[in-house]
Design a protein around this nucleic acid. Structure first.
Lengths: 206, 206
DNA sequence: TTTTCTGTCAAACGTCCGTTTTAATATTAA
DNA sequence: TTAATATTAAAACGGACGTTTGACAGAAAA
């Protein structure tokens, strides 16, 4: 046998992402993962070391591109001659996460759900995902502070937290009949982005 | 021994509520519960039947009073001569949940966290809590539809979902240093209620 | 070829899980 | 006091968990 190393690892990562998304960390067993991935049980510990490190690997694989895109959008906003609008800033927060939905074929809804799940896992699992986004979060908060200097930092703190909370909820509910995001067609994603930004921006401004 | 029946049951419910809140359903073991509650392992299955039915009992104990209060506030709004404002309606949604924080002594933050946890548990656990609130949710949605007749029902649907999402987030973060709700003093709760309503209402109106 | 390294596999490790059983004990009612 | 019932207690049930082991096969290097 001995299929290429990356093939087995990717297979495990993909299945684990879906099961973690659906059943959470403690609700997912390595035996379920390897059974669906059609690899041997020992392969997980061989390639990743432990269940928790497998989770870290799943988080890293999907979070890195999102954070990268967030920071790129943010630096574009910064390089402009004038301060961005609340709407533009919120769009930079929301768009990268929603756009991952237009990527894979059948994996996209899983991605969204996994990201949502990360934020609601009990500690210490939650911190693993939090750490990946911490830098971007802080930079966005700094930018909001510049755009809304009259609001105290603490207030912007909980408001931004609620913004992320709404984004995560949209991701987790994506695909359900009454959700904001019903399909993954690019025009639906764009429409949902606009509606979400419109829903959140007046509250940020208050 | 043989302490009064209700004493043992209440003891189990209280400890279980905290552990479920902190570690989720699958992350909580009955052995942890009975150890902290200082009762025998078999007592759980004797009094409640199973782990899942214990969870149901915890949900029912805290959800019933909240729903009752929600419906009372809602019927007060309905009995008025004119349609309520968005702010008044949102307050009726948010207030009962936030007010449970002013009840117990050390149990209040646990209550809040448990309610938040319920909403983020993987299925089929999530449905248990959802069922307790389903009737009130539907009635609130009907009322929003009457106040905002120009918005399609589907739009009100996801907006209301995001409102609950924000409420739950506030409850789960309560007590943390940068949270909206830092203490459980009545005046802090009232202030947080006002700020949350102010943050959400313009988005509902759009 | 021989050797070395990498990856796979079946099997087993010890531990903890939810639940059940069996016996003893306290409470209640006759 | 006695019989019936309700509750506690200790122990064990079978099963599932994450992890480790050691034998084995293919590829790469010598």
């Amino acid at each position: 046998m001995a299929a290429s190393t990356t093939e087995t690892k990717e297979q495990i990562l993909t299945v684990a992402e879906r099961l973690f998304a659906e059943h959470g960390f403690t609700g997912t067993t390595l035996r379920n993962v390897v059974s669906e991935a059609r690899v041997n049980l020992a392969a997980v510990n061989y390639h990743f070391g432990s269940k928790e490190e497998l989770f870290r690997a799943v988080v890293a694989r999907f979070a890195r591109p999102v954070v990268e895109r967030e920071l790129r959008l943010l630096s574009e906003l910064k390089s402009g001659s004038e301060l961005p609008s609340i709407e533009a800033l919120l769009r930079a927060v929301v768009q990268p996460s929603l756009e991952i939905l237009s990527e894979g074929e059948d994996t996209r809804l899983v991605r969204a759900k996994f990201m949502g799940r990360c934020r609601t896992e009990p500690e210490p699992i939650q911190s693993i995902a939090y750490a990946e986004f911490a830098v971007a979060t802080e930079m966005f908060l700094d930018m909001f502070q510049r755009v809304l200097p009259e609001q105290p930092r603490s207030q912007l703190g909980w408001k931004f937290d609620l913004v992320i909370s709404a984004l995560v909820r949209v991701l987790m509910e994506a695909g359900k009949p009454y959700a904001l995001l019903k399909t993954t067609r690019p025009e639906d994603i764009e429409a949902a982005t606009q509606q979400l930004v419109a829903f959140l921006s007046p509250g940020m401004r208050t």
